[in-house]
Design a protein around this nucleic acid. Structure first.
Lengths: 400, 400
DNA sequence: CCACTTTAATAACGGCGTTAATTAAGCCCT
DNA sequence: AGGGCTTAATTAACGCCGTTATTAAAGTGG
């Protein structure tokens, strides 16, 4: 347990934080709303709010209509208070986006990556160039930039210095933080891309309002973000949620991670396409890349029994994988995302639910709804950008 | 996020809680120790401590030697402050234990259960009778009893009223809380037995000092307790950690839960023995119950290649199951427990580690140590008894 | 017995939320 | 237009509680 000590000042910090979170997620709200929902007294709310307004974190935004009685003032997070950058280091591209404090997109750039091995220094260069690019396009000064959040598709090990392991990028122990730090002194928040996407869905998408949710991301790789008690679960070294490499078929297909029977080897885009190829007795699947091949498979399922069977099997594997998440985490919500997950989701959702119902225990299954994500793949950058914001809100709006 | 408001009073409650936890887990300690470790000023510590002493929660316990300077006073949780009862509702017995506030065992009783279907009312009766029995044996008055913690082997769904689903007991939706509540007005804390055992190991056993740990329990059934950030993770309806019914062998052996390929069907005692029986071409395994049959199997492995192979396979399955926990939770520690887990553990640990290393991702695997539990099977009751204590400590020592 | 050291307790101070009482700012009705 | 009513926001008095600075207590060693 090991609680931290509390002082009188920490009371204020905590209440500032509570009001800021509330306004950020549910705003605009009136002082009365805040008092009611937090349980604070009205004077306390007024006091804190007036500080927040003075500091530019919050602004008044028009009065509400009233039918008798003084009309109440709507309060909201000040969009102009600061900006944040969000970066998506994906398998095929680096995408940098700039947001204001209300998470409105101000500008974005994208740098394609060569498939296969990618030089970490090149990626770091793209990140730095991207930040320069979006800030200059939106004419945002360095001082207005609160921080940079970076979502990387791979295992992001937090420690004294963030180190990234990403098989699909050919990275093993890349000190990405150090590489980027060399070019900027902005606060950096580096995290796994699945986790940042989960964060985005949590705040603005299918996760809103849930305390316990699991975001199952299916793309070329397979990962998950686990939100427990409203907070992304990271584990000892921040690599929790590696769902794709859990064993689903003991002794089964070999996976690029070196193990056998991993979920990813069955329901990752590559695995699906490879199973389809095998079902076609080795005939290659038409399409220039995995994305078009998967589209081809889904289209073929309308007429081809073989394609249909492959999809059915995919739903079975995916459903069992989801059932494992439900049994282990007992979430209120399971959200299916990732580009392949979205492509499959709408079509396979009933079959996935059915398979999950078969494999999960009844009680936790009944507690969980299984849905498709709302925000799409670009949400990795949005979620990454929430990291500095979350840090500031949690600290009560004071940059330490 | 939704933080709770903070008031001046909550500062004191929080600091009381911090000092109590510290004393409870690491005591005895001096006021100076407390000030140093919590960061509170010395007067604040003295102030709070003097309240706690007045209220009987803490006692002074002798002075420390000094070589110059006033010797400091050792402080400890007062063992006589209150008592707690811990109950283990297992598959074969109900065990009730009574502890003082320092978790020293004062008395215990055990009531055997008929194998197969068990009447919930009978169990509730045993619990109530057990509480009467241990309190009268230890001559503890009702008012001294802080509460009762109950660990049940099954899914314990927290809600407005606790409901238990336990296949091995033949229970489906049993309102155990209501049944027990009918016979007592003591504060009741009902939880899954694996979780209470994990709690016990966390405070007094193999989990001490870890922030992120997973307790893998293997008995007749298979379960897990997941501790994240020092707190047992419960999920939306408190049924998180149902590791035994995660799919490990897609389409594999059928499990008593109705699904196929569950981990429990392979490494639960029943599953192991059944696999051994099959390997012996159907010849039954000698032994009157699962426990002796498993012992027989382990003994046979010394000379029999068949038995050896069954154990090796068990280690493989178990290792893969542990690898899944490591990939998903990224714990510092994985603790293997349960009666079958302990019987197998010492012998199979190297093979389990090896299998886990094969199936888990390298980075999270390297973060996790895999160990055997320290406290044994009776720790379910001990862990259950910690529940009322944890509640009191978290509330700063005030019964709400 | 006195100098020195370390622990524990007081005292003065300041931050902050709470309740109760005002003040502000609108609607409605005559 | 202007009182009466309602709701929002601010001000005032009060009390809790941790902090720093100071003093008292309780030892050792020469």
């Amino acid at each position: 347990m090991e609680l931290e000590r509390a002082t009188n000042r920490s009371v204020r910090r905590r209440n500032r934080s509570a009001l800021l979170w509330k306004l950020f997620l549910d705003g605009p709200l009136t002082r009365q709303d805040l008092a009611r929902s937090t349980g604070l007294s009205q004077p306390a709310v007024s006091n804190v709010v007036s500080d927040l307004i003075d500091e530019g974190l919050v602004t008044e935004a028009g009065v509400l209509e009233s039918d008798g009685g003084r009309p109440s003032m709507r309060l909201r997070i000040a969009p102009r208070f600061a900006c944040v950058a969000g970066v998506d280091v994906g398998e095929t591209r680096v995408r940098v986006e700039l947001f204001d404090f209300a998470m409105t997109l101000l500008a974005s750039v994208e740098y394609p990556l060569q498939p296969g091995g990618t030089d970490p220094a090149v990626v770091a260069g793209h990140v730095l160039a991207g930040i320069d690019e979006v800030t200059s396009r939106a004419t945002v000064a360095r001082a207005e930039l609160l921080g940079v959040g970076i979502g990387v598709s791979g295992v992001v090990a937090q420690g004294p210095e963030v180190v990234v392991h990403a098989q699909t990028l050919g990275w093993d122990g890349v000190p990405l933080e150090r590489l980027i730090r060399a070019g900027t002194d902005l606060p950096l928040h580096i995290d796994n891309g699945a986790k940042t996407l989960g964060q985005a869905e949590m705040w603005f998408g299918a996760g809103r309002g849930a305390r316990h949710a699991v975001f199952a991301l299916v793309g070329s790789g397979v990962g998950a973000a686990i939100v427990t008690n409203g907070v992304t679960y990271r584990g000892a070294s921040s690599s929790a949620g590696e769902w794709g490499h859990t064993t689903l078929v003991y002794g089964g297909r070999s996976c690029r991670c070196g193990a056998t029977g991993c979920l990813e080897a069955y329901v990752g885009a590559e695995g699906i396409i490879d199973r389809y190829r095998q079902a076609r007795r080795g005939r290659p699947v038409p399409g220039v890349d995995e994305e078009s091949q998967l589209t081809e498979l889904i289209a073929a399922a309308e007429s081809s029994a073989v394609a249909q069977r492959v999809l059915d099997e995919t739903a079975g594997y995916l459903g069992a994988g989801v059932a494992n998440l439900i049994n282990l985490f007992n979430p209120e919500r399971v959200v299916l995302g990732g580009w392949a997950g979205m492509a499959l989701g709408t079509r396979l959702l009933p079959a996935i639910r059915e398979a999950a119902a078969r494999q999960a225990l009844r009680q936790p299954y009944a507690q969980a709804s299984i849905e498709v994500c709302r925000l799409g793949v670009d949400a990795v950058a949005l979620g990454a950008a929430t990291l500095p914001v979350a840090g500031l809100l949690a600290a009560g709006g004071t940059r330490e």
